[in-house]
Design a protein around this nucleic acid. Structure first.
Lengths: 254, 254
DNA sequence: CGCTATTTGTCCGTATGTATT
DNA sequence: AAATACATACGGACAAATAGC
């Protein structure tokens, strides 16, 4: 790019790839784009050439360029939007994990506006593993709350909360009025709770998760399993949170 | 492929896909395979049908099956090996993150044999951000140690450590003799250190990382940035660790 | 050891669908 | 409504890794 836009036929020095050697073409392209981003030739938020343009510049098929772009997207360097184009990526939110983790406080500390939406509330019977974690008997009713947490109106995290229904049956209606978990727990007689353990993994999102988080299928989600207890040590809930990686960064302080 | 292997022409009930509706074929295939794994029709560690078999069963192109398989691999449900086949995934290692995080102890607690290999040691000049974190002046020498941590001989994590060279210049030779960071620090007069903050994100690996971790490009890596201090509160090192997601799960206790 | 069959990986070319502008 | 740009799907060819002989 940069300068003479035409001349599709010229050899285009610097854009020739090593063919037939051990290195896949899409990797070479992805490396060059990465370098161009690192050196600032493509600036954060800036627009990248279209797939067709890159394909003709590098003299490869469009699919080969797509491969390279998908890799860069998964690594968080670019963002691809159907019908619009591809852009160099930016910004992340720090999400602090600690004994007193509260979503809204956490987001406000980053000078962003927190938001929440309850997606689904159902009751299920506790299977063995869950029952053990919640400290209840197998088969007892569990309230499952599916919730989306937002920062500045953008989806940041999907949380699946599990409460013992015997103690927190009222939460369903409370949450419908106010999507704050902390507020609902307070109304159920738990003004304070504490995070005990958090198990963190990462994986690619399911298509549904990618959709809800408004995130590409190639960007991973951070999966955090948390166990919260009340001041007496009684387990209040077990939560699986899925954070959009690249929008959130979990911070643990010791 | 369970049972009657021939009969390529029969309609194969249950394997027909909804074409031309809103749902991409590869997604439907991935959903079915996911269900088959969940129900135990395909058992953990077990072998899945080949791409060619699935393609003919579902009456789609092999590439469409590949798409579906790649998604499942990224989500950690299957493992794909070139020349061998595809398998249902298993096991993860819990890696505890706490103030006194030590790699070897951590791995041994999981009844696995820890191992380490130093990949590269170089000295660089501290740029602004790093200098600030290390509590040294910009441009001062920093020892960068690239290390691989193994469990039972399998790569688990890649760590890039940054030590102020003024204090820890001897580490280079020490590590060449013994790849343990803890031992090398002890020899440099730091018998104990503490992890202060850890910032955790996830992304897809670079091709090099995927290679070193012996992991697929579709599986994310957990990226943890840690700051360690000595008992006096002096910063000892800043480390970026990249864990193979699906082999490791980070556990935080509060 | 090399040879071969199997299985996944890369790349090309084309056609069509869908979202955005 | 048209043009642009990314998404899905197909079909074919060859490369690379693995396993068995």
């Amino acid at each position: 790019m940069s300068g003479s836009g035409q001349g599709e036929d010229a050899p285009q020095p610097g854009l020739t790839l090593a063919r037939g050697q051990g290195i896949a073409l899409w990797r070479q392209i992805s490396q060059r784009l990465e370098r161009d981003i690192a050196t600032g030739a493509h600036k954060p938020g800036g627009r990248l050439p279209t797939e067709a343009e890159l394909a003709s510049e590098y003299r490869v098929n469009r699919h080969t360029v797509r491969r390279a772009m998908e890799e860069l997207e998964g690594r968080g360097l670019v963002r691809i939007e159907q019908g619009r184009g591809s852009f160099v990526a930016e910004d992340v939110v720090d999400y602090r994990l600690g004994p007193r983790t509260r979503f809204s406080e956490n987001i406000r500390r980053q000078n962003r506006e927190p938001g929440g939406r309850v997606l689904r509330i159902v009751e299920i019977a506790a299977e063995t593993g869950l029952a053990e974690q919640l400290g209840i008997r197998r088969g007892r009713p569990v309230l499952v709350v599916e919730r989306m947490g937002l920062a500045d109106g953008r989806p940041l995290v999907l949380g699946t909360h599990h409460f013992p229904a015997s103690r927190f049956g009222r939460m369903a209606e409370l949450l419908r009025a106010n999507p704050s978990i902390t507020a609902a727990l307070a109304a159920c007689g738990v003004p304070d709770y504490r995070r005990r353990v958090t198990r963190i993994t990462a994986r690619l999102p399911t298509p549904e998760e990618a959709d809800l988080l408004q995130q590409s299928r190639n960007r991973p989600v951070l999966v955090a399993e948390a166990v919260n207890t009340d001041p007496e040590g009684e387990v209040v809930d077990v939560t699986f949170s899925r954070y959009a990686a690249g929008r959130a960064q979990l911070v643990v302080e010791s």
